[in-house]
Design a protein around this nucleic acid. Structure first.
Lengths: 137, 137, 137, 137
DNA sequence: GTGGTCTAGACCACT
DNA sequence: GTGGTCTAGACCACC
């Protein structure tokens, strides 16, 4: 399973955040392992059709966390062993903006709480989100 | 039950947005009814310790939605409730991006479907969203 | 045919309204198409010799209608056209007050029905309103 | 036929203007004649459910035009013979705000020019507006 | 007194 | 660089 990042624009979550979160998840899952090389800033930017500065910012954030190691002129490498999972509080904190945006939109469109739950369930089924057991793999 | 607005500064939510949302909620819940007069722009600004322009912006947004009616020299009043302003397709279309973003973010953060439902329910309770058949504009 | 906006100051029509209306017209006529980028807030402000806030307000209004999409740090773009945003009832309901006011005013000024039709036609021609089946959002 | 004023709020035309226009029309039509007494400011305000200041302003405007004569403590009287009609240009000028409001609303609701003409015709029929011959009586 | 608009200038987050 | 928000202060028309 290759290391793929999906960027979804248009609703609250900044692009650089999405890169950070998904990279972090890949490490936690073992898709990326210590020593693996990441695409260069420019390559990644091209692949995601995104501004290079945005990728640079994401890499910088990951480096600051100690997850990445950017070696001048050589490339960017994963520097930490896996299990770099966010704490539950941190995961919730990062989910919140999207949650707030949804609630706000539902409110302004006069959806009731039940409408909202139903719409979410439908979408979950449609996108085939993993249910139940935590952690996945 | 008086019409009270609580402004939380420092969070990511714009002030005018908080005014809009809370007013909308008050109308949806029946706390505010047709014909009720809202505090004047200046009065509300003073009460919330906020710039009058910010309040005016919130009122303007609500007026555009048809929820409020600002009458020159008189004041701002709750207008006749309207049902089904947007077509059903439009309502869903407008909710979808936020829904997609939430699911996407949940995936990036390794939330399960149940985690996600739980987080949403918590948020719904916390914001005290109107349930079921009540009100509606 | 370039996208040009003409601001008439001194008339009763607010500047931001003129920007909104003319942009809407350009989209309705096809002068502006999906994906087209608009001048930045600051650029447009400079071009029209107007305060940036005024342009921002106009753009915000158009974004709320779903005609525009403002992307942080990138710019403002024309979004996917939408059909039938409002229910038919809502569209008529929103047109009615203006229609009533016009007839009422015509009566007060002793205009005949034909005078009124003629005045409307003249205004339609003058504003170059899109006719019939073209465009639509 | 009594001297009656109809106030229509909610679309562009100021209340005091409506009083001025309709009073002027009544004089032109002969419904009001030289020497006739108008209701006092307070009485008129009460009848129209309107702020006395608004009536006072309308009366002041009519007095300024020489149509009315306010005699301190006695009342307000018509002071000019009939045929005090507006010039055609003036009538059009006074119709314009309502016309603009209609066009603007139609534009923002994506009505075409034909839709608009049709809606106006329907309203004209519905309200039984006098057709053809100018001037009425 | 009221709402509505505009300007000027500042700050923030994202690209 | 971009858009988004907020403040401060001013002016206008209307009630």
């Amino acid at each position: 399973m290759a290391f793929e990042i999906q960027i979804l624009t248009g609703a609250g979550v900044p692009i650089f955040q999405q890169i950070v979160d998904q990279t972090r998840l890949a490490v936690a899952r073992g898709t990326l392992r210590e020593g693996d090389q990441l695409p260069s800033v420019r390559a990644m930017a091209e692949r995601l059709v995104v501004n290079p500065n945005t990728v640079a910012r994401a890499y910088a954030e990951l480096a600051r966390e100690g997850l990445l190691d950017g070696q001048q002129g050589k490339g960017v490498f994963i520097s930490k062993p896996r299990r770099q999972v966010y704490t539950k509080a941190e995961r919730l904190r990062r989910l919140e903006p999207a949650l707030d945006a949804l609630i706000h939109q539902a409110l302004s469109l006069n959806f009731s709480a039940d409408d909202l739950r139903e719409a979410l369930d439908k979408k979950i089924t449609q996108m085939n989100l993993p249910t139940g057991e935590k952690g996945g793999h």
